[in-house]
């Protein structure tokens, strides 16, 4: 079997397993799996920039929140229909990421991380400042009536799982396709050696900007999906913690692999789920995992797999 056949089989296999899980797992875990798939959309968006383009952003919560508020505020306050509001959420995230990208790409390395962190912090504070409309830290709830698409109630167990699955599958397949396209391969070349890629005649800055916008739009879609399926929008999702989560997931699962983000979210979600039943300080686990990962497995779970047994892993 060729590598592309294998990769096609792997991606379809993952989707089949996810679809089958709904009929096998008890309701508590299908609820968890829906949340994991939504967060995995966010993680995949992050991975596109960090794993494939090699840009470490510490401000992706801004894009997640842009999608979330872009959807949530237009649907509750302007009363737009759900699909239009959803598209608006993605557009909002894309625009925000374009602006941030134009500014932040003038820096690189450590400065890039700090600049993105600062912009995200300013975004978070802006949400708090306009608390009159955004309801600040308290957040707001999207009513059940506003979470129905084409007669399907997305608050029901099947509706929520189905919607999460479909949106996840779209992003999963599209991104897998994209990273194997000439565009994706050029981004990988930039990650490996930007100077040489420039020398070959590619406009690296422009390509990196495009990568930021794709990454921001997908992350924003994650945010909009989260608001749509779980009905809550709040400033917590714009905090630094939510910029660090995708980094953690992607590092754990394997940066620069298509299945890494899903594995990372799945692993981390259950790790925190289990440990939070013992202690309030569940972020301690996240800290320990981060330290151990940087020290012993900087390539993550899927990265180690690729190194050892599956060199064709995309």
């Amino acid at each position: 079997m060729t590598a592309s056949r294998k990769s096609m089989g792997l991606h379809l296999g993952v989707l089949v397993v996810l679809a089958a899980l709904f009929f096998i797992l008890p309701p508590y875990h299908t609820g968890n799996m829906a949340r994991i798939m939504v967060l995995a959309i966010y993680a995949m968006g992050y991975n596109f920039l960090f794993g494939y383009t090699g840009l470490l952003s510490l401000g992706h919560a801004l894009f997640f929140a842009a999608g979330m508020y872009g959807f949530g505020m237009t649907v509750t306050q302007l009363g737009l229909p759900v699909p239009v509001a959803f598209a608006f959420g993605i557009l909002a995230a894309a625009v925000v990421s374009l602006v941030i990208g134009l500014l932040a790409l003038r820096t690189s390395g450590v400065a890039f991380m700090i600049v993105t962190l600062m912009f995200a912090q300013a975004g978070y504070l802006t949400i708090l400042y306009f608390g009159e409309y955004t309801r600040g830290d308290e957040g707001f709830v999207i009513k059940q009536a506003q979470r129905t698409v084409a007669g399907i109630d997305l608050t029901s167990e099947a509706g929520r799982y189905g919607a999460a699955f479909i949106l996840f599958a779209i992003c999963f397949l599209l991104l897998a396709r994209l990273v194997q396209s000439p565009f994706g391969r050029t981004l990988i070349a930039i990650r490996e050696n930007e100077e040489r890629t420039r020398m070959l005649g590619y406009d690296a800055t422009r390509l990196k900007l495009q990568a930021i916008v794709v990454s921001g739009a997908v992350s924003g879609m994650g945010g909009a999906t989260y608001a749509l399926l779980f009905g809550y929008v709040g400033a917590t999702f714009a905090t630094v913690q939510y910029s660090i989560f995708p980094l953690l997931w992607v590092l754990l699962g394997g940066a620069g692999t298509t299945v890494g983000p899903l594995i990372g979210v799945l692993f981390m979600f259950y790790l925190i789920d289990i440990s939070s039943s013992y202690t309030d300080a569940y972020m301690l686990i996240a800290g320990v995992v981060l330290v151990l990962l940087t020290m012993f497995a900087p390539q993550g779970l899927a990265g180690e797999l690729r190194k050892r047994v599956m060199p064709w892993l995309p």
Binding site: A281, M283, L284, G287, T294
Partner: peptide, 30 residues
């Protein structure tokens, strides 16, 4: 224990110290 072993690589140091941040903060909470 940590920074020396990852050879002060800038990116990995940031990720590692984020981990240390949560360890100290959450241990204090406990």
């Amino acid at each position: 224990l940590i920074l020396k072993r990852i050879e002060y690589d800038p990116d990995r140091t940031i990720v590692g110290t984020i981990g240390v941040l949560y360890i100290i903060q959450q241990t204090t909470l406990m």
